[in-house]
Design a binder for these strands. Structure first.
Lengths: 241, 241
DNA sequence: CGGCAAATTGAGCATTGTCAATGTCTGTGG
DNA sequence: CCACAGACATTGACAATGCTCAATTTGCCG
């Protein structure tokens, strides 16, 4: 049987590393009402323009946020991994400004907006830890603005690969060497502001130069330092502490 | 003489529109210790890599945040106007992941990190209102990722002009028609991921087509609807409510 | 084996960048 | 009041990164 402990474990671990939560804080978090649901790949969890009535947490699987221009071009603005509180926006903002969609099959815990607000108003330390989550999200967005605005295609894609590797590692979700990238080349393109065709060429190039090894969607990184250099990757912005 | 009311006026107005603050909340905000300082243009207020010991609020003037790639390319990730709490990061994160620099001469109110944390832990409603600020910042970053990633140069610059116009208007800082853009073309380039040369050509093009009128740095917008269309601008992401 | 999504490749093109020169404005010192 | 310096804006010619269009291949699943 799945208990709140299983559901909120990754999140709790993250939050405890940020603030000294007391018993009451921990209880309040574990006592949050939630509905657990398994969601198929490519399903919308949040839609732009909706009035949200809940927040959600990824228990397992991967998801991403994206926006679409008037002309229909899609931009992926972030990718999320298990333990990520996506849509804290849903608790505090009145309208969704972007879409959230599953990348793989996911288990999602939905938490009512009212319960979130109650928790926030009664447990300042929990609230602070969550707010820090929002701040780190913001930091990652800033890095993405720079990635898309000022790096060429090769560094841009390498950077994405580095970020993903590092985040998975911290969450304890990485195999000894490399990882399974849960995105198609089209999605990579939408995340980097490139075209799928060009993403393909760059990936081929990175592999040719021995910077990555590809087997299907598995990305192997034989020389982290080399890839890091090509990407211009520095993990400060992830605030791993 | 300048009182806390003058300093925090714009901020208070913004926050009150978001949460029902009671007397104690208002007092706590107005009671925040701060140091007011006038800062010349182009001065660094926050530097990447520093351990912050304060937050800051723009009382008057304009500022921007930026990051620099390893190769030395600069990306401006946001522009701030009076009443903006820049660097809430400074209260809750342990290291700065970007620079903040003044655009014009500014009056900045510096608030010690400890005072901010104290306020946050004791006044949940104020805390929530500030958190909303962080969420909205995040929303704007997302829009910028899309701007830089998926719009062509013309829409990209128009979009920036629209965003600025709208935010100034809401803050009550706009003249009847158009506004003074406090950025050089080089800075516009760094904000849009373009080169100064290309920014110049695009601005000339927008003016030629009657979408904007330029006199020095003053931007006139003769037909808002037309510019909005070119930009693909929709203000939902600003969460003006 | 057939069907479909995703990946790969090629050829030609265009948006935007690079380099370099020139023009304009503003403030300052003589 | 004028000359000059310096920052910013503007323009031209050419180059290149990344895009478009279109075809082909690969892998997966029923």
């Amino acid at each position: 049987m799945t208990t709140p402990h299983d559901i909120f474990r990754l999140m709790l671990r993250k939050f405890e590393s940020r603030a000294s939560l007391d018993e009451s804080d921990r209880d309040a978090m574990l006592g949050l009402p939630y509905r657990l649901q398994t969601v198929e790949p490519a399903v919308y969890i949040v839609r732009e323009g909706e009035r949200p009535d809940r927040s959600c947490l990824i228990v397992s699987g991967f998801a991403f946020r994206h926006k679409v221009t008037v002309e229909g071009a899609r931009q992926i603005v972030s990718v999320h991994i298990p333990g990520d509180f996506i849509d804290l926006d849903g608790a505090l903002l009145n309208i969704s400004d972007h879409n959230v969609q599953t990348l793989t099959r996911c288990e999602i815990a939905y938490i009512p907006r009212s319960a979130m607000r109650e928790l926030i108003l009664t447990h300042p330390k929990v609230s602070m830890a969550m707010w820090v989550d929002t701040l780190i999200d913001g930091s990652i967005f800033r890095e993405w603005v720079m990635n898309v605005g000022r790096r060429d295609a090769r560094s841009r894609i390498s950077h994405l690969l580095c970020e993903f590797a590092r985040r998975l590692e911290v969450a304890g979700l990485i195999e000894e060497y490399g990882y399974e990238l849960p995105m198609t080349q089209e999605q990579l393109a939408d995340a980097t502001g490139l075209t799928p065709v060009h993403v393909n060429r760059v990936l081929m190039g990175l592999a040719r130069d021995g910077l990555i090894e590809r087997h299907k969607r598995h990305i192997g990184i034989p020389d982290w330092e080399a890839l890091r250099r090509v990407a211009g990757f520095s993990e400060v912005y992830l605030h791993l502490d």
